[in-house]
Write a protein that binds this DNA or RNA. Structure first.
Length: 314
DNA sequence: CGGCTTTGACCAGCGC
DNA sequence: GCGCTGGTCAAAGCCG
């Protein structure tokens, strides 16, 4: 058990509960009931992805979870668009996935589209603060001015939230993260941990918090996008994955930890076992059921999660 | 010794 | 204006 897990356990039953704090539950979108092989409803996802993400030139959220096979059961991706789009739809459902390994897994997958300005403000603020701190107190006043300027330009990073049913708090996703903060969340017994990608010039952050409603669920929110391949050092040895330079061929993705296509885990036996029956690959769904309404939906998903699709198409 | 976590302090936004 | 809250910083400590 990780230190963080111990800490989280210590926080248990220390205060009252509220909602998924930063996950806008009212605006979250859930996938319909799924039985049998879990084919992810890519239609619903893609229709929620904003054009900002779609038009991203940096690729996509190139990450994939590597939860402990023994403890992690499932995870759900949701997309917290975090832009000023108006979504009038709100669906909620549960999926019951019959696992080939014998496990029955119940999950709820939501796509969140909650516009939020405070986050971006903090994002810009912190960057400004760091710049100012590097230069000493003299630049502190400049920081204020910069901050005001920055507020005029509210650049919001795309965010993707995943709800993962796992005992592991910090899921392995192939990237290296440095924890830079932990905060107690209002009305939640579980703290929220803040991580930053350790790669230089990569400002991807992620928040990890355990759902108060279901302590077995970990909510991971990624912010921004990696501008570098998955590092090959240390943890990557666990993946037996592609070389860092071979980013496009990586099998690691938000989907890949619960997708079991022959190519997805061909090199990772540990991966295959716990997710052997779960197929949530949207492309797989397209192939099997032709449920994509149009090519743009598929293309959109491809941009969001290229590592899945490159694997599929290779 | 480098990388990472911990943790109290700080700051800005927001609501009252 | 004040208090609350979320997000971040950074010093200190831990660990391999």
């Amino acid at each position: 058990m990780s230190n963080e897990t111990k800490d989280l356990n210590n926080y248990h039953h220390t205060s009252s509960y509220s909602h998924y704090n930063n996950i806008d539950s009212q605006n979250m979108m859930s996938l319909p009931y799924i039985s049998g092989p879990c084919t992810y409803n890519a239609n619903m996802i893609s229709s929620q992805i904003g054009s900002d993400l779609h038009s991203s030139s940096q690729g996509a959220f190139g990450f994939g979870f590597k939860p402990s096979p023994s403890s992690s059961e499932f995870f759900n991706p949701s997309i917290d668009q975090d832009y000023n789009y108006n979504y009038n739809t709100s669906h909620k459902s549960h999926a019951v996935v019959g696992g080939g390994g014998g496990a029955i897994i119940e999950n709820e997958t939501r796509v969140s589209a909650s516009p939020s300005s405070s986050e971006a403000d903090h994002h810009g603020k912190s960057r400004m603060k760091r710049e100012a701190d590097d230069g000493g107190d003299e630049q502190r006043s400049q920081k204020v001015a910069k901050t005001k300027k920055n507020q005029e330009k509210k650049i919001r990073e795309p965010r993707v939230s995943f709800m993962t049913k796992t005992e592991v708090d910090h899921l392995e996703d192939g990237y290296r993260w440095r924890k830079y903060g932990q905060k107690a969340v209002k009305n939640s017994p579980y703290p929220r941990s803040y991580y930053r990608c350790t790669t230089q010039k990569c400002n991807v952050k992620k928040r990890v918090e355990r759902s108060y409603q279901d302590p077995t669920v970990v909510i991971t929110t990624y912010e921004s996008q990696h501008n570098h391949p998955i590092p090959t050092t240390r943890r990557m040895a666990m993946f037996s994955g592609p070389a860092a330079s071979d980013y496009k061929s990586s099998s690691l993705s938000p989907f890949s930890s619960f997708i079991n296509t022959p190519t997805s885990f061909a090199h990772d036996d540990l991966f295959r076992v716990p997710y052997s029956s779960v197929n949530a690959n949207p492309y797989y769904q397209q192939q099997q059921n032709h449920e994509f309404q149009n090519d743009s939906d598929y293309e959109l998903l491809k941009e969001m999660f290229p590592s899945v699709f490159f694997k599929q198409e290779s």
